[in-house]
């Protein structure tokens, strides 16, 4: 075991080398609009105590919510760029997040289901979300922001790979 501390913290390229496939840049718009809507709604909800009581101190709650929303929105471009996936020889690897990084690898033989989901914003931008389902609910592997044609192609490819490596549960 390496006695010296690791040279750097978990850097994506270190854990799984190789070219990462990125999601469409149009997904940035979808994510931003989604963040915007939820920020507005949450701020409105958080300001209810103020409207009911009229105490000015309570304005701090919607204020904090709003600032958090803005910060999340500010990091959206980086977060979208951080989403990546790879089709490796035996498994599908997904990475997400910058502040909270998560890497997940699913062997092809373990896939039970491949979903394609499209919300209204996704549809407007011609995007789709691809979701892999295994027998474990904790797997939770999804790739948002794929162009529809790419998503369908990827789904067919994954199903084909899964079939060729099929195993029991």
């Amino acid at each position: 075991m390496p006695a010296a501390p690791a040279p750097a913290a978990l850097v994506p390229t270190e854990l799984v080398p190789g070219p990462w496939r990125r999601v469409s840049s149009r997904y940035l718009v979808v994510d931003l609009i989604g963040t915007l809507i939820s920020t507005v709604v949450l701020t409105a909800v958080a300001s209810i105590p103020f409207w009911l009581s009229g105490v000015f101190v309570l304005l701090a709650i919607p204020g904090v919510v709003f600032v958090v929303g803005v910060v999340v929105a500010a990091f959206t471009p980086r977060r979208v760029r951080a989403i990546g996936y790879q089709l490796r020889e035996d498994d599908f690897v997904v990475r997400r997040g910058i502040m909270f990084q998560r890497f997940a690898a699913v062997p092809y033989g373990r896939m039970q289901l491949v979903d394609i989901n499209r919300g209204p914003l996704d549809r407007a931008m011609g995007l789709a979300e691809l979701k892999l389902v295994t027998a474990a609910s904790a797997s939770n592997v999804a790739v948002p922001g794929l162009p529809l044609a790419d998503a369908e192609e990827l789904r067919d490819r994954l199903v084909e790979l899964a079939e060729s490596r099929r195993a029991g549960l």
């Binding site: 998560r102 890497f103 997940a104 699913v106 373990r110 295994t134 474990a136």
Partner: peptide
């Protein structure tokens, strides 16, 4: 089924 690693 799969394996993952996290870091906050």
């Amino acid at each position: 089924q799969s394996v993952s690693v996290h870091q906050g």
